[in-house]
Design a protein around this nucleic acid. Structure first.
Length: 575
DNA sequence: GCCGTTTTCGGCCCGACTGTTTTCAGTCG
């Protein structure tokens, strides 16, 4: 059982307790426990009860339940709840506008157990007969059922960014003097976003009307003076909040989240005799305002340094802000090199020189060209002979002195048994070697771990590429003991990659943070398959920021000579 | 269910919008 699987059962337990109408704080505890589990870098299945209890938010009961899930795959508690309510009832709970109370009513009054039951009840007009419900509510459910089919799921960070940017541009045309900014998970840089949160200050009330009249609107979910929600094409929900300029900082803080971070801040405020909401920080005694205009002022008034949005996930940032230990996070401009990209020689869209010039124009000082190896036949992967010929061409461009240095490398497949896809002689003759898994994702955890460990032990490997192989919204990470991989990387001097492809972002933030804490060397690479994709580096930097990394923690912030000297192949002690 | 430099009991974040209510419950973020 991996953490996500454990978290799923805890979250389902919370949902079922909520439908049952149980103690709301107990429900919160389960939900909180699920979040902690899903975002924890260590595998809970391998931690004993004492260890689990040391994690804040995990108490006696949750620790026992987690152990039970880890050993038996489920909990008796969860099974008992499922005996009370059919599992399919949870699908209904996830519909827009339907909460636990409604689900419970539908089940008790109309015996509605599935989405199909619900759809039929709507068609028959049975919903409107229920207490507290009417024709509008029934129509709302019909729409929610329809939208579920079309807009399921979340969106890649990069897509959310683009959709948000377009919407902001439109809104600014209607309110040129207003400050309009993205908040929520997009501002925190989460790898996927559920919806687009926007905050406007200093805008006329008419901005709300413009918002709900946006060209791409599919449906208006809510339309008020200070808060409106729309569904736009592409499946995004967008929320716009309007606040007065003097409350801008408080609102930025409030709507950026995360929820857990905000709860901790408000809790801290209460302890100081203060109250925090989206309008400001107030003294409880007389409601007088302490801070509200700037986010920094809110944190300062709470005795905290400013916390960058990417760190607001309740992973120690409050303590760090209190002890002046918030790191100065890496920025895109700190990167001097990009170490993973493809060309037309395999599955890239652009030539060596085109990629190099585009990288140079983007401000980089060096790149590594790392096309695929022979196993990846679909991508026209290189055998030894082609790899060396390709390297010669890369070095020829480097020798021309076009204002950027080039390293001749390879993204070499790790075969099923952990052997490298090209001979040691070939790998040794190149400037840099990335080792990556591109096949056999169904291997068992032990087999996959051993496979990658063997690759790391190959002395010619410099970097481990996209270490978990996940594809956001498509494919889970392959099962692997990431801690063992990180420890091996530390031992051997192999760098682990933060892959910047928006659908990869692999390592994920918590693993990158763990890798850094263990002393691993880390690189951020674009894995570009065209010159345009070089811009994806910004998303890798976002992951690094969420992993608390500073510029000095990332190898490719170094100068070309320092970086090259630091590669494993040049650091290896001669024996 | 979790938590504790007053606390092992008694707290636990807070407000906007909608639909159905004629004063508020449910949902959402």
């Amino acid at each position: 059982m991996d953490n996500l699987a454990i978290a799923r059962i805890l979250r389902e337990t919370a949902d079922l307790l909520e439908i049952k109408g149980d103690n709301p704080f107990k429900i919160r505890a389960y939900r909180n426990g699920a979040d902690i589990t899903a975002n924890h870098p260590h595998e809970f299945a391998l931690i004993d009860e004492t260890g689990l209890r040391e994690i804040p938010g995990i108490g006696k009961d949750l620790a026992a339940r987690i152990r039970e899930i880890a050993t038996t795959g489920d909990t008796a508690f969860h099974r008992d709840l499922l005996a009370e309510f059919p599992a399919t009832i949870l699908d209904i709970l996830r519909l827009q506008g339907i909460g636990p109370k409604t689900v419970a009513t539908l089940y008790k009054e109309l015996d509605i157990r599935t989405l199909e039951d619900l759809e039929k009840a709507c068609r028959d007009g049975r919903i409107r007969g229920l207490k507290g419900m009417g024709i509008k509510k029934e129509a709302l459910i019909v729409k929610a059922l329809d939208e579920r089919k079309r807009f399921a799921g979340r969106h890649l960070l990069s897509k959310a960014h683009d959709a948000s940017a377009a919407l902001q541009t439109y809104l600014r045309q209607h309110a040129p003097d207003a400050v309009i900014e993205a908040v929520g998970s997009l501002r925190r840089g989460c790898d996927t976003c559920g919806d687009l949160d926007l905050l406007a200050t200093g805008a006329p009330p008419s901005l709300m009307d413009a918002f709900v009249e946006y060209d791409l609107v599919e449906r208006v979910l809510g339309h008020g003076d200070t808060k409106s929600s729309i569904l736009i094409q592409g499946g995004f929900q967008a929320d716009l909040r309007l606040v007065a300029p003097e409350s801008r900082g408080a609102a930025m803080q409030y709507f950026t989240g995360s929820k857990a971070h905000n709860i901790a801040l408000r809790d801290r405020a209460i302890g100081l005799g203060l109250k925090l909401n989206e309008y400001g920080l107030f003294r409880t005694a007389d409601d007088s305002r302490m801070a509200s205009e700037r986010e920094e002022d809110i944190y300062a008034a709470l005795g905290l340094d400013f916390v960058p949005p990417e760190l607001r996930e309740m992973r120690g940032e409050i303590d760090a802000a209190h002890t002046h230990a918030i790191p100065r996070l890496i920025e895109l401009a700190d990167l001097r090199g990009d170490l993973h990209m493809h060309t037309t020689e395999t599955d890239g869209k652009d030539e060596i020189r085109t990629m190099a010039e585009a990288a140079r124009d983007a401000g980089l000082q060096y790149i590594a060209i790392t096309d695929h190896s022979q196993s990846l036949a679909m991508a026209n992967g290189l055998d030894e002979r082609r790899a060396m010929a390709h390297a010669a061409r890369i070095r020829a461009v480097d020798a021309e002195g076009i204002g950027i240095r080039l390293l001749a490398g390879i993204e070499c497949d790790i075969r099923l048994d952990g052997a490298m896809d090209l001979s040691d002689d070939c790998l040794a003759a190149l400037d840099i070697v990335i080792a990556s898994v591109h096949s056999g994702f169904t291997q068992e955890r032990e087999e996959m771990t051993a496979r990658v460990l063997r690759a790391i032990d190959n002395p010619h490997v410099d970097i481990l590429g996209h270490p978990t192989g996940r594809m956001l919204l498509k494919r889970q990470a392959y099962p692997i003991d990431i801690e063992a991989i990180i420890d091996a990387a530390v031992r051997t001097g192999v760098a682990v990659e933060i892959n910047s492809q928006p659908h990869r972002l692999d390592l994920i933030d918590v693993h990158a943070k763990l890798a850094h804490e263990r002393g691993a060397r880390i690189v951020i690479s674009s894995d570009s398959h065209s010159r345009h994709a070089l811009a994806y580096l910004r998303w890798g930097v976002t992951v690094a920021r969420r992993a608390w990394l500073q510029a000095g923690d990332v190898l490719n912030t170094q100068s070309f000579n320092d970086f090259r000297a630091s590669l494993r192949r040049h650091r290896r002690p001669h024996s």
